[in-house]
Design a binder for these strands. Structure first.
Lengths: 248, 248
DNA sequence: GGGTGAGTTTGACGTGGATCAATGGAGCCC
DNA sequence: GGGCTCCATTGATCCACGTCAAACTCACCC
């Protein structure tokens, strides 16, 4: 009900086609054969544009579809009654959103665009239907869900067992690796999120994030200029995680 | 390969049947109709006993099956190269284990029995096969995976945004609720895990867990005697989470 | 061009939880 | 029944990160 209001003029009704999409290698179709991918075209009905700061969905919205990001960046977060917010993930091109909704048939978190973005809308009932026929789709979908679970465990490790600088190092290396997978530079990129959002994701205050950035810069590991990041010494960042407290 | 070694004499080869199982309401079959559940019996081939402290699977083991807990308790954890351990969950009767393995076809965490336990072994290839035919199974399986994702987000909230006592309160209330769902007392139960394991799960040191228990007891919210817990004032525990810092 | 506001950086200080250390059970085995 | 081992509790101290506050940067707009 509220959903409509969040996509005022921006909803687009363009027919999309996985078989024509250059995100094949990153997105749901990965690992499927040509025939299977052609059948996917039945599935992905429409695209939807979401402007920066707008919600793709909100906690509580009825669950109807999952989304594949074509262009842009999102964050997902959960909010406690008292207003405390926890960012649960940052999603980029080729990644999936909305899997949390299957369990209760309502979304359990918010998904907000960090920049003007566009997603493919995958009607969930159709996805189930088609994945009963197309083995490759079924398998790939299960992998996507499982990967999300594994990712979440990684975040738990980060939040539960690592110190501030280790968390940020892990975060930067993770971003770098995801950019690489998309053919972008591993060493130089723009952050789409604020220090506050990074902090929420990493279980830190924004000041702590900022200080860690500065420290990394002083130590020659990175160059920071606002949201622009250059990774100068990825190996040193990796070591930081493996050998938590430098020399102790 | 290593797997075999971890189930020495305990592996049982008893034919099990979901349709005869009293965990119907809690386990994978939940929400399926009678006909569908009968077909499930094809799926759950064997049971396996796992003694306390033994691994059901280890990170790196090839993924072949998921597991439904019939009897007992498990923990799952991930371990960093430097030995730091993060408990990612505690699983009890009727809950699923092994979903993390689908994504890479190898398990990404360890599953260890906290007491002598027994699981139903669900061969994954058969599960995919059958869930292409049985709509209710497919849907239910997706819900189980999605529920795990939602649960993980809750843990992230806990680790990223809550203080020590809030984390422990949330943990106790969660246990209480899961016991209730199984027909056990909501107010009185035995913990199967040590303070250290609770601490790992909650991102705290064991001393902090112990102190929080003591404080809850002093405040009349619970009665603790080693692993035996009685919840005396669940409402006060809930309030603790909703109104984080008492009077501020 | 200067005013406004959101986001970031940096400093000074406070504190929640970690660390270190000692003591106290409970279960188990000989 | 006494000693061993594992776990839990409690106290004293420390420190990583949070909090509070001020200044700085950049974008945007009138």
């Amino acid at each position: 009900m509220q959903m409509k209001a969040t996509v005022p003029i921006t909803a687009a009704d363009i027919k999309s086609a996985c078989s024509q999409c250059n995100l094949l290698e990153l997105c749901l179709p990965f690992g499927m054969n040509e025939h299977e991918i052609n059948r996917l075209d039945e599935l992905v009905g429409t695209r939807r544009k979401v402007k920066r700061q707008q919600h793709l969905y909100r906690a509580g919205d009825p669950f109807e579809a999952i989304y594949a990001i074509r262009i842009g960046w999102f964050k997902t977060d959960v909010v406690l009654e008292d207003g405390r917010e926890q960012v649960t993930g940052f999603q980029m091109t080729g990644e999936m959103l909305g899997l949390d909704g299957i369990s209760t048939e309502a979304h359990s978190c918010n998904a907000v665009a960090l920049e003007d973005s566009e997603v493919c809308v995958i009607a969930y009932d159709k996805l189930e239907e088609l994945s009963r026929e197309v083995e490759g789709l079924q398998h790939q979908f299960h992998k996507v869900m499982s990967r999300e679970i594994v990712r979440d465990h990684g975040v738990m490790m980060l939040l539960g067992s690592m110190r501030a600088e280790e968390r940020l190092a892990a975060f930067l290396l993770n971003l770098s690796q995801r950019f690489t997978a998309r053919g972008f530079s591993a060493a130089e990129f723009h952050l789409r999120m604020t220090r506050d959002e990074i902090g929420s994701y990493l279980g830190l205050k924004l000041e702590t994030v900022s200080r860690a950035f500065s420290r990394f810069q002083d130590d020659g590991m990175i160059a920071v200029q606002q949201k622009h990041i250059r990774i100068l010494d990825p190996e040193k960042l990796r070591k930081l995680i493996q050998h938590p407290v430098a020399v102790r």
